[in-house]
């Protein structure tokens, strides 16, 4: 378990460094992964739920070079995150072994 996460993060970073950020987002694949991981229980595209909207997240990271890295950390390491009601909770770790699938989800979020 502990070894898998750094490997996944490293894989994603290498994908990013390889210049794939401009690759087209697979909308359906991103939504399917999000649904499978209950992302939409806490997040919606255009309104705050338990967590911020994806539009708000995308706006927060717009133009920032470390956007992908920060989202990746949230989705793969389960850090404490601040909720809309002001409390904190550990973010869910996305269950996928496919770095491309996870990167696609991050790109989808950032393109909202």
């Amino acid at each position: 378990m502990n070894l898998t996460k750094p490997l996944l993060v490293a894989g994603l970073l290498s994908l990013n460094l390889a210049g794939s950020a401009l690759a087209a987002v697979d909308d359906e694949a991103a939504k399917a992964l999000g649904k499978r991981n209950d992302c939409f229980k806490c997040h919606a595209v255009d309104k705050a739920k338990k967590g911020p909207s994806y539009q708000k997240i995308a706006a927060k990271y717009k133009g920032k070079a470390d956007a992908e890295e920060k989202l990746m950390k949230n989705l793969t390491t389960g850090p404490k995150v601040k909720l809309e009601d002001g409390t904190e909770e550990e973010h869910k770790i996305i269950d996928t072994k496919d770095p491309k699938e996870l990167k696609n989800l991050i790109d989808w979020i950032l393109s909202r």
Binding site: K35, A44, K49, K50, T87, E89
Partner: peptide, 21 residues
């Protein structure tokens, strides 16, 4: 999962379960 606090607080079921499908 991750909803006990919200339910106890009186949040609506659809505050989480409102996604498509």
């Amino acid at each position: 999962k991750n909803a006990a606090k919200e339910v106890k607080r009186g949040d609506s079921c659809t505050s989480c379960h409102d996604e498509e499908g």
